[in-house]
């Protein structure tokens, strides 16, 4: 299979470039939105040690999003800051699961956030992220191979972190167990959106940018199956995508309000230095 060493090479093939930018937006927007949701937890985590660790992870994820936006910048899609702060919601390619709020309330006022949801969403997402990154290590787009290797180094630590939380809470008090099961159900309803590579997925796989969706899904499901078995849980039917496929620009209204917050200051004067 042909490899593309630089952005210039990728740009010579419009079909390749289209699938590549699509995937980069998926990767960037996933991390951008989940890092944002994580940062809303700042100062509210169950204990101070976790506040420090969680904010470190969110910072890493925001950094990963930045790396992908920079790759898009190289491909002529526009400035990384404009891509992250000025696109309209339907242009975002993140999975719906990652835009959903942490619970009820607002991060500044009466946040009634659900730690079980944070743990399950982050754990399952990080599992999927690692599987995708492993696949990207042999991507036909060489700059993406480099990014994937860099990101993987940090993701391995994130995975250990969330795995520990998941196991500790699922095997603990009755209340914790119940809350975790509720959170799993909630995450399950939308998780297929994380595993989807969207309408352009076939081209991505055919041109070797990332492996096909079915392979990624199988790996993820088999991993989650073993996690469930260890915890005495049962894998139900396949995960769903109840609120639509974010990879194709389908989103909930919560994305729009998230983007309003994220871009509140930048929008005042995007041309200015900040």
């Amino acid at each position: 299979m042909r490899t593309y060493e630089t952005a210039e090479e990728a740009l010579e093939s419009p079909e390749y470039n289209e699938a590549l930018t699509e995937l980069l937006f998926q990767l960037a927007d996933d991390d951008f939105l989940l890092a944002y949701r994580g940062s809303e937890w700042l100062g509210l985590a169950p204990h101070i040690e976790e506040d420090v660790a969680f904010s470190s992870i969110n910072q890493d994820m925001m950094g990963h999003a930045t790396l992908y936006y920079k790759r898009l910048e190289e491909l002529g899609e526009g400035k990384a800051d404009d891509l992250s702060h000025l696109r309209s919601p339907e242009k975002f390619r993140n999975a719906v699961l990652l835009e959903l709020p942490n619970g009820t309330g607002n991060y500044l006022e009466k946040p009634n956030y659900d730690w079980a949801f944070a743990v399950v969403r982050n754990y399952f997402y990080t599992l999927a992220k690692k599987i995708k990154l492993e696949s990207l290590k042999t991507s036909s787009y060489v700059p993406l191979q480099h990014t994937a290797r860099k990101v993987l180094m940090e993701v391995n630590y994130h995975l250990m972190h969330w795995e520990t939380w998941f196991n500790q809470l699922i095997q603990s008090t009755e209340e914790a167990h119940k809350r975790m099961k509720n959170a799993i159900d909630q995450v399950w309803e939308e998780f297929m959106g994380v595993l989807s590579t969207g309408d352009k997925g076939d081209v991505m796989a055919r041109s070797g940018i990332i492996e096909d969706e079915e392979t990624i899904k199988k790996r993820w499901i088999s991993k989650v199956e073993s996690v469930f078995t260890q915890s005495g849980l049962h894998l139900k039917e396949k995960p769903q995508m109840k609120s639509g496929n974010g990879r194709n620009g389908e989103h909930t209204p919560t994305l729009e309000s998230a983007l309003d917050t994220l871009s509140e200051v930048y929008r005042k004067a995007p041309a200015q230095g900040w």
Binding site: L44, P46, W115, Q171, S172, T173, E175, A176, R179
Partner: peptide, 20 residues
């Protein structure tokens, strides 16, 4: 209030950890 509410909100987590 923000600090107190979040502390109460996550009490179940600290209880789960200490039971372990």
């Amino acid at each position: 209030e923000l600090r107190r509410d979040s502390y109460e909100n996550t009490r179940w987590v600290r209880e789960a950890l200490s039971s372990q």
